[in-house]
Amino acid sequence: MSNSSCPVCDNALIAAANAQVSELIICPDCGSELEIKTVNPFSVVEAPREEEDWGE
């Protein structure tokens, strides 16, 4: 399993077995919403704020 760290609180993150690109996950430590960018190697970014009203 490949590791990464939360961009917000720097906490270590381990990719789930069925992790998928574009998946939204929650950092177990600080609760930030993160977006999986790549699975191998495992990398995440902070997910963009939800649009104030509905998506396009």
């Binding site: 574009s22 998946e23 939204l24 977006e35 963009p48 649009e51 998506g55």
Partner: peptide, 22 residues
């Protein structure tokens, strides 16, 4: 450009981006 649309796919919450916006 839309920052992303949150959808449910393979029982996962995902964010997908395309060429659309407001």
């Amino acid at each position: 450009r839309n920052t992303g649309i949150r959808i449910r796919e393979d029982e996962k919450l995902k964010i997908i981006r395309d060429f659309s916006g407001k």
